[in-house]
Simulated assay, not measured.
Amino acid sequence: MTKFILTALVVALLGPIALHAEPAPWYHWRSKSTGTMTCSQTPLGPGWARADGPYRDARCEKPLPTK
């Protein structure tokens, strides 16, 4: 019974934190060899450099407001 109460307490305390989680921002990435631009949340590898961002959509059209 004590494990159940402890588990319920942990879930109750961490629940609000999980509910405020946001998705990762999107960035424009430029190919170092061809200059091609693409939009991604994660680095594409050593041949790519982050060009601009962050954005809140997968098309890199809606900028995130600065905090």
Score class of each variant (00 low, 15 high):
M1L: 12
M1R: 09
T2C: 12
F4H: 05
I5A: 11
I5L: 12
I5T: 11
L6D: 00
L6Q: 00
T7E: 00
L9E: 00
V11I: 08
V11S: 02
A12T: 03
L13T: 02
L13V: 04
L14Y: 07
G15S: 09
G15N: 01
P16G: 03
P16W: 02
I17M: 10
L19K: 06
H20R: 13
A21I: 13
A21R: 15
P23A: 13
P23T: 13
A24L: 15
P25H: 04
P25I: 00
W26Y: 15
Y27C: 06
W29H: 08
W29L: 07
R30V: 13
S31M: 01
K32C: 10
K32D: 11
K32T: 10
K32F: 04
S33M: 12
T34V: 07
T34L: 10
G35K: 04
T36F: 15
T36S: 13
T36C: 05
M37N: 11
M37V: 15
T38I: 09
T38L: 11
T38G: 04
C39T: 01
Q41T: 11
Q41S: 06
P43H: 07
P43C: 03
L44M: 07
L44N: 02
L44I: 01
L44R: 00
G45T: 02
G47I: 10
G47V: 02
G47M: 12
W48Y: 10
W48L: 04
W48I: 01
A49Y: 09
A49E: 07
R50G: 03
A51Q: 11
A51W: 15
D52M: 06
D52Y: 12
G53M: 06
G53D: 06
P54S: 11
Y55P: 02
Y55A: 07
R56N: 07
D57T: 03
R59T: 13
R59W: 09
R59E: 14
C60D: 04
C60P: 01
C60T: 02
C60V: 04
E61Y: 12
E61C: 10
K62I: 13
P63E: 09
P63R: 05
L64S: 10
P65W: 08
T66C: 02
T66S: 13
K67S: 11
